[in-house]
Amino acid sequence: MTSVDYVAPTDVEAAVAALGASKGNAYILAGGTDLLVQLRTGRVHPGTIVDIKRISETRTISEKDGAYTIGAAVTGAEMSAHKGLSQTWPGIVEAMDLIGSQQIQGRASPGGNLCNASPAADCVPALIAAGVSCTIAGPGGRRTVPVEDVVTGPGQTSLDANEFIVSFEVPKPAPRTGDAYLRLIPRTEMDIAVVGAGVCLSLAEDGTCQAAKVALGAVAPTQVVVAAGADALIGSKIDDVALEKLGQAAKAACSPIDDKRGTIEYREKVAAVLAKRAALKALERAKAR
């Protein structure tokens, strides 16, 4: 019943100003694949919709000295089509690609996937595992925070009302680094993850794992960093013993719920399975580097 404003600023400062000027709640529109459903079902009542897709910085993938910057509103289809990014960070790109259909891929963005703050967001565990941070713009200028510090609970983020994510900063990978993301869904496509697992690891020249990060999705109110899982891998050759420990750690890190998509018991079991499988996939990629 209240009127809604739509604005499509062309630079970051104007977007921040539009957020501040909104008479009601302001919502950022990137791909809109979550926001439009929430609008339709009446879950959100915006005063202003701020479309950030006309800001070139949010829509660009760039590379500098081996590190990538991914605009927050870049689409999944664009990430998949980016050869350099796909070769360097296949886990991140796959995770993004798993979100929804080809139609969703034409719109959905990593910024939206993160800020929707669903525990089941597919690209988030992969971003966390890869050590990605994001650049947040607000009235006080810009700040950079690790991805794992953004989501604070289902539908909740640490962003202030007038802030939004401009881009993601993906580090230059260490030599012999591989990443992977796997999820469990009942069908082959179109479902929300029942469990998701992202693993990134780096090998020494002799094949010993010298760095690792493991993150799980859909098993707790937010994505979970499994430090004990990384510890199980580091120093090992990712043998069965290490993988078993990783699985145990993944299971222990879960604090899931029973819901229409899965049971607590199921999510714990599958978290262990997927963490191990993702580690093996990451290992294979690291070895190929």
Partner: peptide, 21 residues
């Protein structure tokens, strides 16, 4: 996907896009 349209070469769901966009 019944509402699929192509926008600037990408297939999208027109139900998930604002007319204003």
């Amino acid at each position: 996907g019944a509402c699929s349209v192509i926008v600037d070469g990408d297939v999208v769901c027109s139900c998930l896009m604002l007319g204003a966009e």
